[in-house]
């Protein structure tokens, strides 16, 4: 029985192994690794929460083909990302580059961290300056 369940389970998972990228792989494993890294960082514009590596939308296929072609032409990663941003905008990249529009996106976490630190320091300072035993205003009000 256990075996049967295991077999059924494995059968049900078999679909996962169906390749999405049906294009010809690079012969050079280094190139192939580079290619896979690039396509896992490019958004499929048609299916916005997928990378073009995971998507079988035909647009994703076209973009993979285009990236493969650019790589064969000897373009660097930066040039390939430029090619995409020129045509589809910053949104095409999962790691948007720093520019006027995306600046807020990049610095916002820092701003939140600083704001949090500022509040924490203020609270700690205030508590340190209080007499021992009174650790906030409610206590003070009660006593």
């Amino acid at each position: 029985m256990k075996r049967l369940i295991l077999a059924l389970f494995l059968c049900s998972m078999a679909g996962l192994s169906l390749a999405i990228d049906t294009g010809q792989a690079f012969e050079d494993p280094e190139m192939q690794a580079r290619y896979e890294k690039i396509i896992s960082e490019v958004r499929c514009l048609k299916c916005q929460n997928q990378t073009i590596k995971d998507s079988n939308a035909f647009l994703a296929g076209d973009l993979r083909r285009e990236i493969r072609r650019l790589m064969t032409d000897g373009k660097t990663d930066a040039e390939i990302f430029d090619f995409l941003v020129e045509r589809y905008g910053d949104f095409a990249l999962y790691r948007p580059r720093m520019s006027g529009v995306t600046l807020l996106l990049w610095i916002a976490p820092g701003i939140f961290l600083l704001a949090g630190a500022f509040v924490a320091v203020r609270v700690v300072r205030k508590r340190m300056s209080m007499p021992i035993g009174l650790d906030d205003e409610t206590d003070q009000a009660v006593s």
Binding site: L45, K46, F58, L59, D62, L63, E66, R87, Y88, G89
Partner: peptide, 13 residues
Amino acid sequence: ADGRVGIDWGVYG
């Protein structure tokens, strides 16, 4: 036919 010019125009739908 193969969508190459579409990519140049940033077409996605």
